[in-house]
Nucleic acid binder design. Sequence first.
DNA 1: GGCAAAATCACCCGAAAGAATGACGACAGA
DNA 2: TCTGTCGTCATTCTTTCGGGTGATTTTGCC
Lengths: 148, 148
Amino acid sequence: MKRHVLIYGLIGGVLITALKWAEYRFLVIEHSIEIYGGLTAATFAALGIWLGLKLTGKGQGIAVKEVPVPSGVPFVPDEKRREDFGITRRELEVLELIAQGMSNREIAGKLYVSENTVKTHSSRVFDKLGAKRRTQAVQFGKESGLLP
Amino acid sequence: MKRHVLIYGLIGGVLITALKWAEYRFLVIEHSIEIYGGLTAATFAALGIWLGLKLTGKGQGIAVKEVPVPSGVPFVPDEKRREDFGITRRELEVLELIAQGMSNREIAGKLYVSENTVKTHSSRVFDKLGAKRRTQAVQFGKESGLLP
DNA sequence: GGCAAAATCACCCGAAAGAATGACGACAGA
DNA sequence: TCTGTCGTCATTCTTTCGGGTGATTTTGCC
């Protein structure tokens, strides 16, 4: 939920800035979706072009094909593997924070829940991954593509 | 986190644009948003890269520019970074085993030393990396190319 | 509306981890 | 030979983890 607010805020900010800068404010009402979509598409395309330029500046085409595809879409399909393990979203969320080196207390603070809750989630995740320690859980998570 | 917002925003924008442009709005209900987002993002990125390749013509360099992509690189240069942190070989060895999810006791057994020694090494490594927990040390180690 | 899953929190307790400190032998280099 | 680094080990103490158990609330779905 919080993420949505962030996303909309960010997009809105970018959009409005771009529009303002281009003096196209009158188009917002009628064509906002097209415009902001087009802008993002153009941004993405530009990013691709930049990547292509950057990579072809000194290298041959072989490396270019392999590298940018995985880095352009950095880790989205966690949902599938997550369910393969029977891990819930919240549990994966906790696991991600564990992988970032946070303590249970810090995670609790970040997620606005009690430390006991974090412990419950982490315990369940360890159980589902067959891990005995958090470091092991992180390792398993990375190996199975559950974590970036 | 922040990156996620950006990515989702971009993907979402591209998706909506693509859908709208192609008048395929009815497909949204039936298909997952991730798939279309990934497809469209990949399409635009690929298009951008292709454009970049076209525009730059033929690259002549042979050497592949070092791209920060963890895949494909089998990881060899630890010696250099190790010394940048002032970490000894033994300490890095312990850190590697920690990263594999082993407990201090297991590490002690594997290295044929006492558990106290392992604790000393790990404490020193944490100190040199500025980490407070072993998970954090692992994270830092991976980020700085100290660990695979 | 009701059921099942998920999320939340609590308490206890043992094990593991980590901080702080001190010490000792091996070894390389000045 | 003296010095610094490294590796080793110990002790004490505090904090954190993790297991086990049970409970309540929230949420998603039929």
